[in-house]
């Protein structure tokens, strides 16, 4: 009889009615999952409890190429043609000319970097490891016409290679050049943040093999993860912040010349 009860019934009726009308079949059953906040998860891994990020310390990178070799071995990336899920660039900046650095990456750094500069040439040189930035607002995800690339509930940008058409829109959309078309499958491939490893409690292959700890996988939803202290205690930056991609690859010691 009371007004509140009537309101509640009406609200309930409208909600149920809208659900029934708007959602059909698969979508209706999925709605309950979405409302409950239970993302796709392996029995031991709840994706919604993680928010993965990468910390890259340029001050520590020695350009050994260990990450590039490990990544190719772990993820079955073709050795030739020269495609990479992660690679290392060598920057050479003359004086104050930040706008025109010399950048080279011989075979992505797979075989290391032969010395081509001189210590007293008045320039500075350093290595920059590159990889998929696992953007929160990924241009690649936005352009995919079929939903074959997406951001998982734990922040990792993944490729659905069974559903990818190989149309290459995402390859062009990525501002960081992190994607390639695998010539064996004609579908797109890129860093998956070693999703098959991090969901088992392991770190990525590149982090596992980096001898100086220049790369550290971090979980931003784990308050005890050292990545919080690192970001707090260092002046970190992401690549191309002006593009507002929401990159989750945080660089320490990033020079203004780095593109």
């Amino acid at each position: 009889m009371s007004d509140s009860r009537t309101d509640k019934n009406r609200r309930e009726f409208l909600l149920q009615g809208t659900k029934f009308i708007v959602l059909t079949g698969v979508a209706a059953s999925a709605w309950d999952y979405v409302l409950a906040g239970t993302p796709e998860a392996a029995p031991s891994y709840k994706a919604s409890q993680h928010w993965w990020a990468m910390m890259i310390d340029i001050e520590k990178c020695i350009g050994c190429g260990g990450c590039v070799r490990a990544c190719k071995a772990e993820n079955n990336v073709p050795l030739e043609p020269y495609y990479f899920r992660t690679w290392v660039e060598r920057y050479h900046v003359r004086g104050e000319d930040l706008a025109h650095p010399d950048v080279d990456t011989p075979n992505g750094g797979y075989d290391g970097f032969p010395e081509i500069y001189h210590a007293d040439d008045g320039a500075k040189s350093f290595f920059v490891p590159k990889m998929c930035n696992h953007c929160e607002h990924s241009p690649c995800v936005q352009v995919c016409p079929v939903g074959a690339t997406f951001e998982a509930p734990d922040g990792v940008v993944l490729v659905d290679s069974a559903y990818c058409l190989g149309c290459r829109y995402c390859v062009q959309a990525c501002p960081y050049g992190c994607r390639y078309i695998d010539p064996r499958t004609n579908t797109v491939d890129k860093c998956s943040l070693c999703y098959h490893r991090i969901t088992k409690g392991l770190t990525t292959a590149c982090c596992e093999t980096c001898p100086t700890g220049a790369r550290q996988l971090g979980d931003l939803r784990n308050p005890k993860d050292p990545i919080h202290a690192f970001i707090r205690e260092h002046k970190v930056q992401v690549l191309k912040p002006q593009m507002a991609t929401g990159s989750k690859a945080y660089y320490n010691g990033l020079d203004g010349s780095v593109r």
């Binding site: 993302p39 939903g147 998982a152």
Partner: peptide, 14 residues
């Protein structure tokens, strides 16, 4: 189910 993508693709990547 979780967005504009195939939910089982997450499992494929794992």
């Amino acid at each position: 189910r979780y967005g504009h993508y195939r939910a089982p693709a997450i499992g494929d990547n794992m």
